Amino acid sequence: MSKILKRPIRVLVAKVGLDGHDRGAKVIATSLRDAGMEVIYTGLRQTPEMVVNTALQEDVDAIGISILSGAHMTVFPRIIEFMKEKKMDDVLITGGGIIPEADRRKLSEMGVGELFPPGTTMASIVTYINEWVTAHRNF
């Protein structure tokens, strides 16, 4: 359970598209769970619409996308589009993987939260999610 909230933070971890490299996503999911969060892992080959629908059904606080395929400039905008359609403006969209700095800046301008490159510590990811959820979904 989060030290700040009176309930566990709920996070959906997803792999979108044909990116079959899920070791990092599983490590993140396990680490978030070990930090007291409730984690839903969707598995491989999800579509942006499937991710958003699952996030809505599971009433998550955050969606974390693990992406190594280079499709981040397609995947994140589509997820944001579906989130807007479903009025999920108070849900964090974040992620990590191989995303060049210039693209991270563009995605941030579109509304994507922090994007974590390889080598980021788990503590910093946990802290970021805790702080964001506390500031935006403290209910």
Score class of each variant (00 low, 15 high):
residue 98 I to V: 14
residue 51 V to S: 02
residue 128 Y to F: 04
residue 120 T to N: 08
residue 87 K to T: 13
residue 85 E to F: 08
residue 53 N to I: 13
residue 71 A to T: 09
residue 54 T to G: 12
residue 102 A to K: 15
residue 10 R to E: 02
residue 110 M to N: 04
residue 38 E to T: 11
residue 105 R to K: 05
residue 49 E to I: 15
residue 14 A to I: 05
residue 14 A to K: 00
residue 93 I to V: 10
residue 27 V to N: 09
residue 87 K to F: 13
residue 133 V to A: 03
residue 64 G to W: 04
residue 43 G to P: 02
residue 115 L to M: 08
residue 111 G to W: 05
residue 51 V to N: 03
residue 100 P to G: 10
residue 1 M to V: 13
residue 26 K to H: 13
residue 92 L to T: 03
residue 29 A to I: 04
residue 16 V to K: 00
residue 108 S to T: 11
residue 10 R to I: 06
residue 95 G to I: 14
residue 60 V to S: 01
residue 64 G to A: 09
residue 25 A to Y: 01
residue 95 G to L: 05
residue 110 M to Q: 04
residue 65 I to L: 11
residue 87 K to I: 08
residue 117 P to Q: 04
residue 61 D to F: 13
residue 1 M to N: 12
residue 35 A to F: 09
residue 19 D to P: 00
residue 114 E to Y: 07
residue 112 V to R: 01
residue 68 L to T: 11
residue 78 R to L: 09
residue 2 S to K: 01
residue 6 K to D: 09
residue 129 I to H: 00
residue 64 G to L: 06
residue 124 S to Q: 11
residue 108 S to G: 14
residue 74 T to D: 13
residue 95 G to N: 11
residue 23 R to T: 08
residue 114 E to I: 06
residue 123 A to F: 10
residue 11 V to L: 02
residue 136 H to W: 05
